[in-house]
């Protein structure tokens, strides 16, 4: 009995542990090793602890890296701004139909990611169904375009990752005791003050979770930049893909991947620290 009890936790983590080992830790180690090798596709790669790979990667693609983070940040903010009201509405106003609206929110995502993004290309083309009529009526200059701009990339990212922001916010709002906003109103806070002082701070953990869930994959995304963006809008994910598959520069691609990972890790940790501090200070802040 005691023996079995002692080993039970290890047995329970075994399947997940093996999975992580096989598909996460081993590839990560191989990639880490690869990022320090030198050589080329024809002669083969050798482990030389060639740290220059990192320096070269940052030197050449530093701008792309910064742009990726900028796009991801803009799209994260857009996601939060767009999905908070929707999540709020579903949590507080949808009544019995909550599940229905939550389903509607995720239903577009049953369609393939790439397909959806290409569909956006159709919508946003220079004389497409969106811009065409506006230009015909002289509401937009004829040379106005959305496709192949940074704006299109950010819009596409926002669209593609919206549920990852909306759902955590919904969960956080759903968890807030219904009488708390009422108590705030009861204590002379108007609608705006009740929201700012009580509901918003209590739902911030949801925004935080949503921001991590969207920012990290968006910063590494390359589909949106390649499909919707122009040649000046490339993101680091696209560069990694090109270095790896087009140029066969495995070490450079690996080094860039690790650089991105490190940058994201630092960004998320800094973010968690800042937000956590605000939560602790509460109303006094």
């Amino acid at each position: 009995m005691a023996r079995r009890g002692r080993f039970a936790p290890y047995l329970l983590v075994l399947p997940g542990g093996l999975w992580l080992l096989a598909f996460f830790l081993i590839p990560m180690t191989l990639m880490a090793s690869l990022s320090l090798q030198s050589g080329n596709l024809i002669d083969g790669f050798r482990q030389t602890f060639h740290w220059q790979n990192y320096r070269d990667g940052i030197g050449v693609y530093g701008g792309v890296l910064a742009r990726s983070l900028g796009y991801a940040l803009a799209a994260t903010v857009a996601c939060a701004v767009l999905s908070y009201p929707a999540a709020h509405w579903i949590a507080f106003r949808a009544g019995r139909h909550k599940t229905r609206y939550l389903f509607l929110l995720v239903v577009p995502y049953f369609v393939s990611f790439v397909l959806r993004t290409f569909a956006w290309r159709q919508v946003l083309t220079d004389d497409g169904p969106l811009l065409g009529p506006l230009k015909d009526h002289g509401l937009l200059p004829t040379d106005f375009r959305v496709l192949d701009t940074g704006f299109a990339v950010i819009a596409g990212l926002t669209y593609n990752f919206l549920p990852f922001m909306a759902l955590p916010i919904y969960v956080a709002l759903e968890r807030v005791d219904r009488s708390l906003p009422e108590a705030a109103r009861d204590l002379y806070a108007g609608r705006a003050a009740a929201f700012a002082r009580v509901l918003l701070p209590l739902s911030l953990p949801g925004v935080f979770a949503g921001a991590v869930l969207t920012f990290v994959p968006m910063a590494a995304d390359y589909v949106n930049a390649e499909v919707l963006g122009g040649p000046d809008d490339t993101m680091v994910g696209g560069v990694v893909r090109a270095e790896y598959f087009d140029n066969g520069a495995y070490p450079t691609a690996s080094a860039l991947s690790f650089t991105l990972m490190a940058v994201l890790l630092v960004a998320v940790l800094a973010y968690a620290r800042a937000l956590g501090a605000r939560n602790v200070l509460g109303d006094a802040a």
Partner: peptide, 20 residues
């Protein structure tokens, strides 16, 4: 509206603000 009524409520769940 409630915020302009000169009465205050003690809620059944107390509704204390957990972040304060």
């Amino acid at each position: 509206p409630p915020e302009r009524r000169d009465v205050n409520t003690v809620f059944q769940s107390y509704a204390l603000f957990p972040h304060m």
